[in-house]
């Protein structure tokens, strides 16, 4: 799914050059569930931005889902984000002016689907996160956990192949956090690749593969300490509840 070679990202400000990603290789296979850990400032968000085409990188190559994404223009990148990637953010990033339905609708709108098809997908997605009853609430009328569940629904509604989550549980209590993790696992079970940044080792242990970043360098724990995945995600991915890609 993600194939990075010698990936580099350098932030230049007036006085300092920060090597946020200092040239490493990373491979994440289709259907994997990966936790990304590391101290603050180690480059986790940067890696996620690069992986999600939210930010350009400065060196190396990146092949996403078999497609070289090093030299794409903005329109092409937008399309890939829209169709292949779902994002979940630490601060939810729901659009405050829109109600739950319209929030989940946003990525579908940019895909230009017909109204009927959109409605069906939105309702399905909300069902997965269990918020069908809050469909016309505004974000300000929801709890943090509920908001993040809407964000999850929004991330999966377009049936992306890859979900990137940057500390999705950072603003939630542990019960809520577990619930979100349950959801992500459920989605992963359906075949979607999930990469999640977390500071919580407890949560991280729930994922089959953990990657550590340290000062822009990669330490892949899977290779060192953990056994290879016990199942073949692709085989298990043909699911029963309509979430197939």
């Amino acid at each position: 799914m993600i194939n990075m070679q010698n990936i580099q990202k350098i932030y230049r400000t007036e006085h300092v050059e920060t090597h946020a990603l200092s040239g490493f290789n990373l491979n994440i296979g289709s259907g994997e569930f990966v936790s990304l850990m590391g101290p603050s400032g180690s480059g986790k968000t940067t890696l996620l931005n690069v992986a999600g085409l939210l930010d350009a990188f400065d060196g190396g190559s990146y092949i996403l889902d078999g497609e070289d994404v090093s030299r794409l223009n903005d329109r092409q990148m937008s399309r890939i984000r829209n169709e292949k990637i779902g994002f979940i953010f630490q601060s939810f990033n729901l659009i405050p002016d829109l109600n739950v339905f319209d929030n989940v609708d946003v990525p579908l709108r940019y895909r230009g689907l017909a109204a009927g098809a959109r409605r069906e997908r939105i309702e399905e997605a909300l069902e997965i996160v269990g918020l069908t009853s809050r469909i016309s609430h505004y974000p300000a009328q929801l709890s943090g956990g509920q908001q993040q569940r809407v964000a999850v629904a929004r991330a999966v509604v377009g049936t992306p192949k890859l979900i990137l989550a940057d500390e999705p549980t950072g603003n939630l209590d542990s019960a809520m956090a577990n619930e979100i993790m349950d959801l992500l696992e459920k989605i992963n079970d359906l075949g979607t690749t999930v990469v999640i940044v977390t500071h919580d080792p407890e949560l991280a242990t729930r994922s089959p593969r953990q990657i550590y970043l340290l000062d822009g360098r990669l330490v892949d724990l899977e290779k060192d300490e953990r056994p290879a995945p016990l199942y073949n995600p692709v085989e298990n991915g043909t699911a029963d509840n309509g979430m197939s890609a």
């Binding site: 937008s78 953010f89 946003v106």
Partner: peptide, 18 residues
């Protein structure tokens, strides 16, 4: 006021034209 929401929309696949 909507900078963040614009960024979010962009992340969710909106092009500049959108």
């Amino acid at each position: 006021q909507r900078t963040r929401q614009i960024g979010t929309r962009r992340a969710l696949g909106a092009t500049r034209t959108d």
